[in-house]
Design a protein around this nucleic acid. Sequence first.
DNA 1: CTGAAAGCGCTTACAG
DNA 2: CTGAAAGCGCTTACAG
Lengths: 341, 341
Amino acid sequence: MSRITIKDVAKAAGVSIATVSNVINQSGRVSEETIERVKKIIDELQYIPSASARSLRDKHTHLIAVIVPYADRTTLQDNPFYWQLVSAIESGARNHRLHVLLVGVSEEETFSFVREKHLDGLIVVGTFSDSPIMSSLADIQVPCVYLDSYLEDEDLYQIYVDDRKGGYLGAKHLLEQGHRRLALLSNSMTEGGVGEVRYAGFMEAVKEYGVSDETVTLICEDVSMEGGYRAASRIAEFAEGITGVMAFSDIAATGLIKGLHDRGIRVPNDVSVIGFDDLMYSRHMIPSLTTIAQNLSEKGRLSVQLLMEQIECKPPRKSRKVVLPVKLEVRESTANHRSGN
Amino acid sequence: MSRITIKDVAKAAGVSIATVSNVINQSGRVSEETIERVKKIIDELQYIPSASARSLRDKHTHLIAVIVPYADRTTLQDNPFYWQLVSAIESGARNHRLHVLLVGVSEEETFSFVREKHLDGLIVVGTFSDSPIMSSLADIQVPCVYLDSYLEDEDLYQIYVDDRKGGYLGAKHLLEQGHRRLALLSNSMTEGGVGEVRYAGFMEAVKEYGVSDETVTLICEDVSMEGGYRAASRIAEFAEGITGVMAFSDIAATGLIKGLHDRGIRVPNDVSVIGFDDLMYSRHMIPSLTTIAQNLSEKGRLSVQLLMEQIECKPPRKSRKVVLPVKLEVRESTANHRSGN
DNA sequence: CTGAAAGCGCTTACAG
DNA sequence: CTGAAAGCGCTTACAG
């Protein structure tokens, strides 16, 4: 059984294909009774218009892609963060009758598939100004929304959270609890981006509390549990006096806590740990994770909305950057410094 | 700037569009020098063939969809399990030059988009024989691979893990450690599917050890941390003597352990807990989670492969069902029963 | 080795 | 209100 086409419908209804097309697209210039008849036939025949044929004419496909970076050239980042975000995007897209393509990209990615497949738009997660991805993306004339990317270009639609404040709140929380020897666990910051901004916020609080910069140890590792785990050994071996650590992701914080635990360092008794993101499992960890919470559902929903505004050529917004709030979520992994330790 | 088409290339190269098409598709009947010339022009013009136009003719799109069930009609299951699986599928698909659409479906879903968008194939996760999804899928004549679905039809391509053995190994492990009062944490099994099979395997071991069925408490909750957390209170309140629990997912086990912990019940000292899946974070939990490990990467990779075999009409396999192995991963959340408790 | 032509399934002016 | 026709960008017999 080959595909039912508009021709079959037209023949069965005794009208032209133009008329069928008109009833489908509700162009309004068809008589009531013809509409009824054609609709009935469409139902009977279970006719479904071909998206290929349509997009060949219309140029749009109702298809968007979420671009997430590969961890190691072949696999997506092993971080529930992406799943929560992509989930929110999927459900947001659905409300706009869009389908979403999930594509992982490595640095040498080429984006020819965007034009090849006539994608209507792109949501790009976690890139940065000098990234090879940004330059591959340069020619692609397609609506884009960038998440967590800190791009200079004012014309770009961007969404991020208040990373500076997140870093600030994290440091402040640690400092208020009496911790003075602090560590920061970040991805390598050569990339610019969120790490830098959070770092700046963190340091701002440190300064405010009159603590010397030098007591803050910066540790750079992958954003992964393994990265966090490695950081734990670095802290244990090279920085004995540290009692407060902020990780710039819950995922790294998780590995860090485990690493500390495996070395007999208790959290929060010996060392307080604070994360960033508030993943769905963070409240269920033992100890539950103090963290800087962001609303991933909102981020996903909003990214689709910003994309739609571009696709539909809505009147431009005052600013194309949206900053979402963060909030300190105090749980069990942080506690007051005990001078005894 | 509108799209560069095959016409532009043909004109620039001084050949017909048929010739351009032939060099693109390497049909082999073009002279070397023409090939060179055309290729050069293609490069210069950055010509990219239109997938819409192609698929209008060829009928295939190199697009597949991963179908995952919604948790609550609007959001995807909040389970890293899916992310790990979908990641593996994405990277497998990439090796076959396929793109993947991520689509969450609720029970009353219609799959008209499959025909509308001319998808080449579907990977369907976690459905079951009498599911409304299966009946919506019935008409869709498109290659499918079902994951973890226990469908009767022998003609369907299916992949699952050795769930019976998983249940068996879990029970055996608990029993060997001296636990006699056991609980099972599953999703509601009205659905049939993996829960039933794991349950059967579990009971098999119970019988083997001469333990009465009646000492096994079955608890049904959502496959989620919250579900696991609720189960903890049920165990604490209504089944005091239980010392060994198997959850049919790591995600539920995580919530369960947290729930027990919050009630002052220690894992593994008071109660041993074993999960199922071996998610990436399970080894980093505190205590690290004893679990039945499955290889999600392999599952994802294989599902793409089975799909490709159908798409390319490869000679059929002896069996269309593939059962992947499971393996007991003993970690910290289980321990010998202490009669003292 | 190369090209003219038909056709894939639609939509949208344009006539009537 | 309805239909014939052109055209979207390709590929594939078919001629030559």
